[in-house]
Computed example of a mutant assay.
Amino acid sequence: MKEKITKEIENNLDSLVSISKCLYEHPELGGEEYLAAKTLTDELKDRGFQVEEKICGLETAFRAVYDSGKAGASVAFFCEYDALPSIGHGCGHNLIASMSLGAAIGLKSVLDEIGGKIFVFGTPAEETNGAKVQMAREGIFDGITVGIMTHPSPVTEESGTSMALYPMNFQYRGKASHAAASPEKGINALDAVILLFNSINALRQHVTRDVMFHGIITAGGEAPNVVPDFTEAKFYIRAANKKNLMEAVKRVEDCAYGTERITGAKVTISCFEAVFDDMRTNKTLSEVYNKNLMNLGEDRISPASAGIGSIDMGNVSHVIPSIHPWIGFGDENLVIHTREFAERTITEEGKNLIRKAAAAMAMTGYDVITSYELQKQIIEEFLR
């Protein structure tokens, strides 16, 4: 059966590479991935999948299902396809889309014999609003047995953790006045935002070591001789898990309200992007994937890196057993989110990553569907 899966992927590899190259040549930002979504959904329809577009009210999101008509487990693969501003596919989402599509095609070739269902989700805007966050919140993944995706990387690593993320926006409103003639009549919103930065910096010593703060000032006044009446700052608050994250967020809110009291500038706090949960790798499922990848010729899988940033697959992992491994180019000097990384995705190396990752994911899906004992172990770990 696994030979049939790999043969099916090999037979369709040129088509998968063409799709990856098309996305590379036409990069689209998050929420604007119209060509990518159409390309993928058209392909899935041609392959016999039932496709529902614009799910969760998201213009470029989709859900595709192939049902064997027989009882069995369900396996979900996730396509990402948004690009980075000015860089294009420096995160390799063009490869992710083709890898997951290839996995679905490979597993479908045996599904009528083994039973179960395949889901393919198109999940836009991973770099910003993270469609998986809203999809998880609306119950789109409920009832699916496992979720699998693979991300390109400089080196191959097993699925690990990611950091929980809370994006905070602070807007201060003061009162304008002439900075020299009558500064006492003004309320300086810039003073407030500077105090906010100083207060948050003072927090760094008094939070758990996993907590991180990254902030920028997006509005700081218009002219030096005018007391600024409006300022704005954006922060990412990160932590190893949701508990530590929310404790840090509360302390940052206290800082903001403290600067309001000190300066008189009124603060409005909001969340400007989706809140990402930490990634909870299902180790049982991860070990099955690693074994399949090694059998396909991967010579080394490194241990998972700690604190690799934030991914919306984390939200999926809190709903269903999930993995998010990394498939590497074998170049430790390669840096993700660069034009150089984007260019590597359309090389012969990129083609080989599609081949290996698609096969490893499809074979892992096969293992899950055909083993009730494995399903039990995966679910027991998830529920712990």
Rank of each mutant, 00 (worst) to 15 (best):
V110G: 02
V275E: 15
P154H: 02
A176Q: 14
V120F: 07
G57R: 12
N295P: 01
L95K: 02
V275P: 08
M313G: 00
T156R: 10
N290T: 00
I114C: 11
K266R: 15
T370W: 01
M163K: 12
G174I: 12
V207C: 02
A202S: 15
H178T: 12
I144T: 08
G92Y: 03
A239F: 07
Q377G: 00
I378Q: 08
P183G: 04
E373S: 13
R384P: 00
L95D: 03
F272D: 12
K108T: 08
I327F: 12
A359W: 05
E138H: 09
D142Y: 03
K117H: 11
T60P: 11
E260L: 06
K243D: 14
W326D: 00
I354N: 07
I237T: 07
S20Y: 09
A64C: 07
E10I: 00
S177C: 13
D278P: 02
R280I: 04
A359I: 00
D278G: 04
I320K: 09
K54L: 00
L293R: 07
P321G: 01
T6G: 00
S162L: 09
A104G: 14
H318T: 13
G115A: 06
Y372H: 13
M163S: 12
T128F: 13
N241D: 15
Y81T: 01
V120D: 05
A219F: 01
K291Y: 01
L353R: 10
A357F: 09
A73R: 11
